Simulated scan of single mutants.
Amino acid sequence: MDIYRLSSDIKYVNQIGVTLNVEEKLKLELSLLQITETEKFDNILFWGKINGVKFDYYIAVGLNFKGKFEFPTKKFYWAKSDTFVFDELPEINLEYRAQVDSFRNLFTGDHKFVLIPLPEDQQAEEQNQEQAEGEEKPEDSDEEENIKVKPKAFTELDRLAYVVRAIENDCALVPVGAFKLTPTHELRYNDSFRGASLDSVANINTYQHFRAPQSEEKKKFIARDDALFHFNFLDPIEHDLPKGCWSVQIDSSKTSATVRSLLWPGFVGYHRANSQIFGYAYIGNGIKNSDLPFLL
């Protein structure tokens, strides 16, 4: 959701019964604009909000298209509802992937809260390493050999980083035709895009994932020189599993459609027919509906 259209586009997310209040919108607009003063992005988006028990987390993503082969880079930021100060979201630690997928408890709102502590032997090793660092190193010691990655407990901030990127990978979407490839294979907004027609705006095959292609078919297609003459070079969401994990709804005016994820309840993609208005956002508790295959 473009930060300059936050106040107007939030109405599309309201259709799932969630929203941002006036204070949240004002503080978010100011905080997100501050990111643009320190970082250079081609585009910055309001990604969404993950609800917590004590405090909530707000997420933003910066996009850089220039000089990026076939797909832009994404840089995520997070802020808490008590400060509205955005910091860069850390990279994910795949070591804890199995444990994160099994979490069903709500976020507390305390980003330092330890979810998976270090084993006792690793804690002892870390303490010994800290003591060793306080001692003087021999002059003939090899500096590179003494560089070790300190073990780290898994905190709620680590979980937040994992969940945000998982939702982005599984759900981020755009209408077909909204982006194009340049002759140098850089992704760009398609200025000639006039939006899906009234007849097709509510069809699931109108939308594709906003991520680097993951299917072999699309990987080969986007690598071809003639891919720049087509717009369907990204993975279509209609083939996502489990089948039926998307719900497409059209509003009473029959002019706007929302694409809702049943796998990640709280995610909404939206598009207004015959216009360049489209986007997506997530407002929810950050818990995946892993039982969905058994419910469909």
Rank of each mutant, 00 (worst) to 15 (best):
K11T: 13
P265C: 11
Y58N: 04
S192I: 06
D225V: 14
D142I: 08
K66H: 06
K27D: 03
R104Y: 09
L262S: 08
S8Q: 12
S141C: 09
A172M: 12
V201A: 08
S247G: 11
K112G: 07
V13C: 09
A124G: 00
A166V: 02
A212V: 06
H185Q: 14
D240I: 08
T155I: 05
E133G: 05
I283W: 01
E133M: 13
K219N: 09
L94K: 15
I59T: 05
L106I: 05
S102A: 14
D191G: 12
K80W: 00
I283E: 01
E168D: 15
E144L: 11
D82P: 03
N205F: 10
K150V: 00
Q15G: 06
V149I: 03
F154P: 00
P151T: 05
G17H: 12
F107C: 14
L115P: 00
L89M: 08
L262F: 06
F46I: 01
S192F: 12
E70Q: 15
D2Y: 12
H271R: 14
Y270W: 13
R260P: 00
S253R: 13
K40D: 11
Q276F: 07
T83K: 15
Y207V: 05
I204C: 06
A60R: 05
S141E: 10
K75P: 00
K152L: 01
S200P: 00
Q99L: 11
L33S: 15
D170N: 12
S252Q: 14
Q208C: 10
H230K: 13
G52T: 02
K243V: 05
T108G: 04
D121F: 04
